[in-house]
Structures are given as C-alpha cells and as structure tokens.
Design a protein around this nucleic acid. Structure first.
Ligand SMILES: [Mn+2]
Ligand SMILES: [Mn+2]
Ligand SMILES: [Zn+2]
Ligand SMILES: [Zn+2]
Lengths: 124, 124
DNA sequence: CTTACTAATGCGACAAAATCGCTTTAATAA
DNA sequence: TTATTAAAGCGATTTTGTCGCATTAGTAAG
C-alpha cells in the first residue's frame, strides 16, 4: 500500500519539526493549525513510525511521545539514545547520549526505551 | 499518617515476592488468593512505592509494573538499573546492569526509567 | 479530463489503565 | 472498650489509544 500525501500528514510533521522536540498527540492537536481528528493524528503518527520518519517514546507518565528520527537513528535501525522529560515544562527531548547496555546471555533485545525524568536546562 | 498492617498489603507483597519479578496490577489480581478491589491494589502498590518497598517501572506497553526494591536500590535512593520485558511471556524483570548516563550541563535527573524489550532467556 | 481504485479521514464506539470521591470498615493505641 | 483515622469497597470518571465502518479524496491509468 503506497502512501499518499495529505494535508494531515504535512501538518503533523510540520508541527513536530518546528517544535524540535518529541510531542504527544494532545500537544500536536493543540499546536496544529487545521482541525484533524484524534484517531487520524494517531494513525498519521504510527504510519510515520512504520516508515522510519518518527520514533515513539514511552514516558513515565504513560504517554507516547513522537520525535523525528535523525540520521543516526535510521543508520542503526534502532533508537538507542536517551530521552529526557522535564516535569516542569513537560518537554520530551532526544538526548545525543547513546544507551550502552550489556545483558545476560540468552536475551534478545528488540527495542530500547530509556527516559530520564527531571528538570531541564531551561527550567532549572 | 502511620501505616497499618492489612490483609491486602500482605497479600500483594506476598504475590510479588513469590513471583520474583515485576508485576502489573492485573497480574497481581489474577494471582492473589483473596479478593481485593482494583483501586485498593493500586493504592497498596503506590504506598509501597512511597515507602521504598517497591519501585515502579513504566514499560513500552504503557502499563506500570511493580518490583521489589533490592538493597542496592535503597542504598542509592534511585533505581538506575535496566529492566527487561519479554514480548512472549510478558515478564518484566529487573536486570543487575546499572544504567550509566551522562547528560548535558543544567539538567537535573530525578528518576530513570529504562526498559529493554525483546525475548527473554526462557522464551528464546 | 474522466474514471477506477483504495489509502486516508471522520466519527462514534470501545477498551484498557489508572485515579477519584465518598461511604464504610477495621487496625491501632489510648 | 472506645475513639481515631488509615485503609478498603465501589462506582464513576478520566485519560490514552484503538477499532469498525461509512465517506472522502489522492493517484494513476485510460
Ligand atoms: Mn529520540
Ligand atoms: Mn527494577
Ligand atoms: Zn523544562
Ligand atoms: Zn519470556
């Protein structure tokens, strides 16, 4: 199934790109200029994830945040970098720091979700 | 407010201890011998977290898992170890591996939530 | 420019996780 | 035994995310 270009796709990607940080569905809906249905926003976001344009971060608050994939993401095919969520401004950002881990034999790691929570540079 | 000893507290802690892994509310409710209300289980779990008996892990599935605090947890006052969630058996376990990270200046880290998802030793 | 195909959207319902308000119960100590 | 109030029960509610289905609209072929 070939992807089609739609106003929704462009608007969602535009908002995330301008924000320069990871965003949740509700934050996107707030920022977006046009009116897009909630389910549609989720579908657009998940399609972008499938296509390697965005990646999903599960934060401690139980919400999904979506961020642009950088070149180093697509290269490694995995997103093994830390994320930071600020408890003051609720911003979620990708940190440049890679996650280094070693696990016991017999374990197969398919995905990594590492989120540090605290106070960000702007809020401290 | 001083804590009281109740059957609910004991039952919940017993289930988690016997399981030897992190458990979600619904898994605890399934395993537990006595009948405890869902809200009560959550309140018991959160109280244990407040008291440093348990710690909470947010997995990629958006569910909270609760695990016993080990001595090395209470010592450091933080839980900076990795967790592993198996996609086959849904088990969430604490790994001995510490999370090592360095963040840019100006950031204050208050909690760490690192979960590796994949296939565990038993299921591979 | 038309037309056919079907991906994408809107909308409401639904599901799951977690919390909340309020009443009742029961653990604890005086 | 009694008073105090933490904890439990219960239903409603909130939040996040998905699903089914009818409708719309992007794309390419003719
Ligand atoms: Mn990221
Ligand atoms: Mn742990
Ligand atoms: Zn901040
Ligand atoms: Zn397993």
């Amino acid at each position: 199934m070939k992807r089609r270009n739609t106003p929704s796709k462009e608007a969602v990607l535009s908002v995330i790109t301008k924000a320069g940080k990871a965003m949740s569905q509700d934050a996107i809906e707030e920022e977006i200029a046009i009116d897009i249905n909630r389910a549609t926003i989720y579908r657009v976001l998940n399609r972008f994830c499938d296509d390697g344009v965005l990646h999903k971060v599960m934060a401690e608050d139980g919400k999904q945040y979506f961020a642009l994939c950088e070149t180093y993401d697509t290269k490694a095919a995995t997103h093994q970098h830390f994320h930071f969520k600020c408890t003051k401004c609720d911003t979620v950002e990708c940190l440049p720091n890679q996650v280094n881990f070693s696990i016991p034999d017999g374990y197969l790691v398919e995905s990594v979700n590492c989120v540090l929570t605290g106070v960000c540079k702007n809020c401290s």
